[in-house]
Design a protein around this nucleic acid. Structure first.
Length: 268
DNA sequence: CAACCTGTTCGCCA
DNA sequence: ATGGCGAACAGGTT
């Protein structure tokens, strides 16, 4: 699998857990690149003041969104966009050009890097939950992410199924590679109109979404490990990519605004 | 060097 | 009103 961090739900979970090294520890100092695009819409000076001296209590993910809780009812929101990653450095670390936010603790520095800054840092203080932490969509791993949920959401869509899979309000955390993987494993062509799938196809799509999510979280999500060898992800960017199932040459086209790879033989 | 990129948001339109 | 589309965002990589 490609090593650069371009995060969908499993990659996001992997990076979130990296900062667990600092849970229950105080933040001694905060360094940030105020005014950078990554802080758009939030007050980075207020963030800096509120997190200095606060204790990092824990974090969780919702799709591609990460929420980190701190003492004093302070919340940090991180979205990694296209090029974000999170890492841990020694406490005397000097942030580099793209390290836009660094939380210094006694024994380590928690670093957020995002060269392209399509990602975003948010901030909230209060007893109430941040508004950016609410989502209409149930987690794919939850019971509420049912066949019924998928069926009803897809009924409203007129465009290609590929576009519907990228909608965070339906499939939270699914991005470009997962969408292609889901369609390939379900045997559904990315060009099909979302509302036109029959019951068998809907069921296959729902099952593939659940199992790919589960497996990605157990591999990529834990230690950036490789997903199963026979998955499409390993060949989808190769110029001469071949379908792992039947060996035929993969199609590549822009569908719903994203480069899409699929096998015209086994996806109808 | 030009093209391309695992994401979201905006404005415009149907 | 909701959804779909293209453009824009910014830097690194091929």
């Amino acid at each position: 699998m490609q090593s650069s961090g371009m995060p969908e739900l499993a990659e996001v979970e992997y990076f979130r857990a990296i900062w667990d090294a600092g849970v229950r520890q105080r933040v001694e100092k905060v360094k940030l690149h105020a005014g950078k695009r990554i802080f758009r819409g939030s007050d980075s000076r207020l963030l800096q003041r509120a997190l200095t001296g606060a204790t990092f209590l824990g974090s969780e993910t919702r799709g591609k969104q990460i929420a980190l809780r701190f003492s004093g009812d302070a919340w940090l929101g991180i979205h990694l966009g296209m090029s974000g990653d999170m890492r841990v450095e020694p406490p005397d670390f000097k942030p580099e050009k793209h390290d836009h936010l660094t939380l210094f603790q006694k024994k380590r520095a928690l670093v957020l890097k995002d060269p392209r800054m399509f990602g975003r840092v948010r901030f909230h203080v209060g007893k109430d939950l941040p508004d950016w932490w609410s989502s209409p969509a149930p987690a794919i791993t939850s019971r509420q992410f049912s066949l019924k949920w998928v069926r009803e959401a897809l009924q409203r869509r007129r465009g290609p199924i590929k576009g519907a899979l990228l909608s965070q309000n339906i499939f939270p955390g699914v991005g470009n590679w997962m969408a292609d993987e889901i369609l390939w494993q379900a045997g559904v062509s990315p060009t099909r109109v979302a509302s036109g799938l029959n019951e068998d196809e809907l069921h296959a799509l729902w099952k593939a979404t659940r199992s790919i999510t589960k497996t990605a979280l157990k591999t990529i999500g834990v230690d950036w490990g490789d997903p199963p060898k026979n998955w499409l992800i390993h060949v989808r960017w190769k110029k001469t990519g071949k379908c792992p199932r039947d060996g035929s040459k993969l199609c590549r086209e822009t569908i719903a605004g994203r480069t899409t790879a699929w096998c015209a033989q086994c996806q109808e």
